[in-house]
Design a protein around this nucleic acid. Sequence first.
DNA 1: CATGTTATTGACTGTGTGACCAACAGTCCA
DNA 2: TGGACTGTTGGTCACACAGTCAATAACATG
Lengths: 207, 207
Amino acid sequence: MDPMTSSTPSPRSRKRPEERREEILGAAADIALEEGIERITLRAVADRLGVRPGLITHYFPAAEDLVIEAFTRAAEVERERFFPAAGTPVERLVHFIRYIESGTSAPLARLWLNARHLSRFSEPLRVVLDEQDALDRERLLALLREGVAAGEFGEVDVEVVCARIFIAVDGSGSYVNSGADLLGEAHARFISDVAEWALGMPSGALR
Amino acid sequence: MDPMTSSTPSPRSRKRPEERREEILGAAADIALEEGIERITLRAVADRLGVRPGLITHYFPAAEDLVIEAFTRAAEVERERFFPAAGTPVERLVHFIRYIESGTSAPLARLWLNARHLSRFSEPLRVVLDEQDALDRERLLALLREGVAAGEFGEVDVEVVCARIFIAVDGSGSYVNSGADLLGEAHARFISDVAEWALGMPSGALR
DNA sequence: CATGTTATTGACTGTGTGACCAACAGTCCA
DNA sequence: TGGACTGTTGGTCACACAGTCAATAACATG
């Protein structure tokens, strides 16, 4: 039987450590997004890779470390979709708002909801979540500061605007998570409404 | 040895079924609030009552039913603290806002965050969470309608106002949950700011 | 080709979980 | 008082989990 096409217990595929480590982290990040962070288990990760659970332990002696790194990875990958590199501050802000209001960010919203909850019980997760939160905040703050400097936003307190927008994003995400749109149409435009309000812009300016 | 004061394996205390059932639900609701819904386990509940796990099974043959009922109970108990029965609509709205901004509602915020997350994986929990959401929404909507009728709020779309306030509450709760106040002072007044904005009231009117 | 390194497996431990069930014992009624 | 009802126990089963370790087999290097 050709060992390459053998369907039964695939012959040991030995990989370079860095590559395997990346594979494991990727699988764990996928699980976090699809099934929830708490489902990142030695078994679940191993099954995704067609590998034995002991191997995961070999790379991550403490399972919690895998969880932390996988969450970080998932957060980083998803974040890059939020803030485009090019465009004026207003254009980038509109992209950010669209990204959320369109529902495209739903997986990330779920991941965040998930992490915020679990952070009550895991100090390491709380720390890394705070770090990722800070990174997001820095992105938006930079965008806002740039816009103020360019005269696109008027003279606003960027800290306050940033806080208002992010709280709105989290609130919106809570409802997106459950799938049901309990709050009607006002929900779909909530982020842009809040952003316009916080920035002192006329209603509809960011749509 | 006096069986009443015996400290060793407490003599079987037999209780009336309804009473015992209430006891179990209360203990489970406490666990949900203090340790998280997912920690409602036969053992955890039994330990709180100084009883054997099998007894919990006797009252709740399916553990999931206990979780659902306990969550409902916790949600109902906590909700009553939100909306006082007496006062003008504005007074009641201010009470509602104060209750949240003071941090008193933090346990409920955590419970909600917890439930929203778990509802992804439990259809029964999703259903009961939607029900409880609807009850909250009805309370606030009634308050708002009353205020509009009394001329206290002007001519606003109460549905939109309600949605905005609740999304704000959820967003605020997400950050309260982690303990760290990542967003600074703007956070503490966020609900009242949003309520004033949504109601078209001057800034500070609800403080 | 031989040898050492190490990626990978398989089997085991201990804990926590929900579910199940026979036996026990408190309570109430005849 | 005696029996029936049932609240309650203690034990067991099957499963999922993290963690440990010796044994194996693929690779790299000489």
